[in-house]
């Protein structure tokens, strides 16, 4: 029998430690968080639907009503981020307030507010998409891909 491999021993030690950590670490309140996310996320959608319905009743076309609804929802999220309410909502609602378009607006406005102190060029300009950047990059990438697929299918 040779000497035990020190790297292997370290790995076992780290694994044992992780087991202890997982035992003692409190688990997130998944059920409560889900209820919050469902309720808040649902409410945001209901508000958007009410706005759409109102616009449709006012005689707007379906496409225009959707676009205007998005604009209004983005404005509302930006506004509530600005007055410091959206982050409080996000603490409880989690995905419920992150996933809708309002969450995207919140990520951009929060970054803009945060980095304003470093100036408009190196602060706001350079870092406004710090958080939202990945969504944009991969969103654009996927849209191009889908566009190409469409070209191939239709031609």
């Amino acid at each position: 029998m040779g000497m035990p491999n020190p790297d292997k021993l370290k790995k076992v030690e780290a694994e044992e430690y992780d087991t202890l950590v997982q035992q003692l670490k409190p688990k997130p309140a998944i059920f409560k968080n889900c209820v919050w996310a469902f309720t808040v996320g649902g409410l945001i959608c209901v508000i958007a639907q009410l706005i759409t319905n109102y616009l449709l009743v006012s005689g707007m076309s379906g496409t225009d009503a959707s676009a205007f609804t998005s604009v209004i929802m983005i404005f509302l999220a930006a506004f509530f981020t600005g007055i410091g309410i959206y982050d409080e909502l996000g603490k409880r609602a989690g995905a419920g307030s992150i996933v809708p378009i309002t969450g995207f607006a919140n990520a951009i406005v929060a970054s803009a507010m945060e980095f304003k102190r470093e100036g408009y060029i190196f602060g706001v300009g350079a870092r406004i998409f710090t958080v939202a950047g990945p969504t944009l990059v991969f969103g654009f990438a996927v849209s191009v891909l889908i566009g190409l697929i469409k070209v191939f299918i239709t031609s």
Partner: peptide
């Protein structure tokens, strides 16, 4: 917060740890 995590006004959910 801003150096190690997220912008302070961003609505992120903290974990119990």
């Amino acid at each position: 917060e801003r150096q190690f995590r997220f912008p302070t006004e961003q609505g992120t959910q903290p974990t119990p740890s």
